[in-house]
Amino acid sequence: MLEEKHHFKAWLYLSPALALLLVFTFYPIFNAFYLAFLYNFDYMQRTAEGMTFTTEGINLFHNFRRTLQDDLFIRALINTLIIVFVSVPVSVIISLLLSVWLNSIKRFQGFFQTIFFLPYVTNAIAIGMAFAVIFHREYGLINMILTSVFGMEEGLNWLGRVSVDESTPAIRAWFQRYLNLPMLSLMVFITWSGLAFKIMVFLSGLQSIDKQYYDAARVDATPKSRVFRRITIPLLSPMIAYITITSFIGAFKEYTAIVGMFGIDLGPHGDANRLITIVGLVYKSLNEMDSVGAMSRAASAAIILFMMTLVLTLFNMYVSKKRVHY
């Protein structure tokens, strides 16, 4: 009797969640693809000139192409990749070290744990604005330290508009364009906000490792660095894999932090969209809804983002399969 199937009842329990998911999760997934293949969809008029694949002389990937050909998309893509591949490794390594250190002390452990957890509960807009003040050219803390402690003549213009000097060598220009001071400031903020979650997960992982492995290693005269590399890291590898995957996914979607620090223009004053990301591009298109095809471009950008996340996640999972000890 207990093993009997409860089809009707089960679906009844599921129905509230299911109804909401159908409308706000499943349908949007399909609709995103539908939109991305609509030709000249005019949101204001609610009209379209058919699908890209039924329209004569129109490329199947018309909307994707327009998205990709947009200069802003290239910038958004590069900014996103910089954020993903710099901020994630940096914050994973820092949080790994911090949690190992934290795990090895007894006194004040709870105190430090509470402090390190603070960024998890904060409002990204509010803290982003605070970071903007900290990086302020004249009234900020960073420049004050740079001038008074490190003896610099005047501080750096962290959040100021970037001027790209096209006459400099290509590499130099590239750095000016992408890995500039505003980007570095943003990265500090993003790293700051990402530490809390990672530290918590690593710390609880470390605390679940049997102490006897460390006793055994000690008796066998294992140097500290080797204990870390050969015992701690492998036994923590499931958490490291989990954190790496979720952080990559999160970093691909960075947007609110930029709004917090730079405002909805996504860049320094007079230099709008300097720090735009792919998600930023999606919202930008969404805000230009009176322009024909904007919705389709937004949808195609979102799908491109999804594909990139998917590829990276699959790659991560593939690496984890080989390297992670479960």
């Binding site: 949007p28 997934i29 609709n31 995103a32 939109l35 979607k253 950008a301 979102a302 983002l305 996640t313």
Partner: peptide
């Protein structure tokens, strides 16, 4: 695994 931006538009 699907990013929320896919849903937001629709």
């Amino acid at each position: 695994m699907i990013p929320g931006e896919m849903f937001v538009i629709t």
